[in-house]
Design a protein around this nucleic acid. Structure first.
Length: 256
DNA sequence: CTGGGGACGGGGCCC
DNA sequence: TGGGCCCCGTCCCCA
């Protein structure tokens, strides 16, 4: 399964993300803030539409854990929220596995600890909050991804992966020439080559040059007698997956 | 219709 | 932990 395929469908039911729309939210309102890609993750609230925005603090689990050292599980309960999959606000740094001195520790009340037991590892906790945090940090995380994106349905197993993904929503890297926004600096660099005409990737077979390494790789396939993608029915090979898909969709006759 | 180029996106790996 | 880079991939367009 292609890795980018799943995400793209969240962006748009059709082909490409609507850059102009995104730019209107994240870039054009405050171009100077982002033109050098200085902002690593999330634009200020006034830049994004109110419906789509979640403040940066939401993502700062470390800050939150410092603000709520006693644990956020009880906070969430008090708020009456049936928390979604797993919100980052419920994450804190390493703690509570029956080891820390926090509220969920079972050590001080062995009898009460029996009240909340993890179904997967049998660890016991005195409070529901303690059990919840344990499951979020350890047992549930082993069976499902734990870091949920606020902008879409994607979930990740690590905060770093989530942060990287969030950039695809915030698009902090903006082209000074045309205003187009990108999630990562090197994507912007590649785009800038479309303005400058720079083509640093050359084919050793025909000296043709490309601005994009992936495009060179695809081009190299054209020099090969046996292409990378092969039809299972007729054994015909193609230089690109898309060509193979087209071939299969149009109905491989089995000939050739 | 097919093949190829151009532009771009995302996850993973490495430093 | 974050940035750079690589790899794999999609989509659009054109000859």
């Amino acid at each position: 399964m292609p890795r980018s395929f799943l995400v793209k469908k969240h962006f748009s039911a059709s082909k490409k993300p609507n850059y102009s729309e995104l730019e209107s939210q994240t870039v054009l309102a405050a171009p100077l803030l982002y033109e050098t890609c200085a902002l690593s993750v999330i634009p200020p609230p006034e830049v994004l539409g109110p419906g789509a925005y979640y403040p940066p603090l939401v993502w700062d689990a470390g800050l939150l854990s410092s603000l709520f050292p006693a644990g956020l599980g009880t906070e969430a309960e008090a708020a009456g929220g049936a928390a979604p999959a797993l919100d980052l606000t419920t994450l804190s740094s390493e703690e509570d596995e029956g080891k820390s001195s926090g509220p969920p520790s079972p050590a001080s009340a062995p009898a009460a600890a029996e009240r909340f037991r993890c179904a997967q590892c049998a660890k016991a906790y005195s409070t529901f909050a303690g059990l919840s945090k344990h499951k979020q940090l350890h047992c549930d995380a082993q069976t499902r991804k734990s870091f949920s994106c606020k902008y879409c349905e994607k979930e990740y197993v690590s905060l770093g992966a989530l942060k990287m993904h969030i950039r695809s929503h915030t698009l902090p890297c903006v082209c000074k020439m045309c205003g187009k926004a990108f999630s990562r600096p090197w994507l912007l660099q590649g785009h800038i080559r479309t303005h400058t005409g720079e083509k640093p990737f050359s084919c050793t077979h025909c000296n043709r040059a490309f601005a994009d390494r992936s495009n060179l790789r695809a081009h190299l396939q054209t020099h090969s007698d046996v292409k990378k993608y092969q039809c299972k029915t007729c054994s015909r090979t193609f230089s690109r997956m898309s060509l193979l898909h087209k071939h299969e969709e149009t109905g491989c006759s089995g000939a050739r």
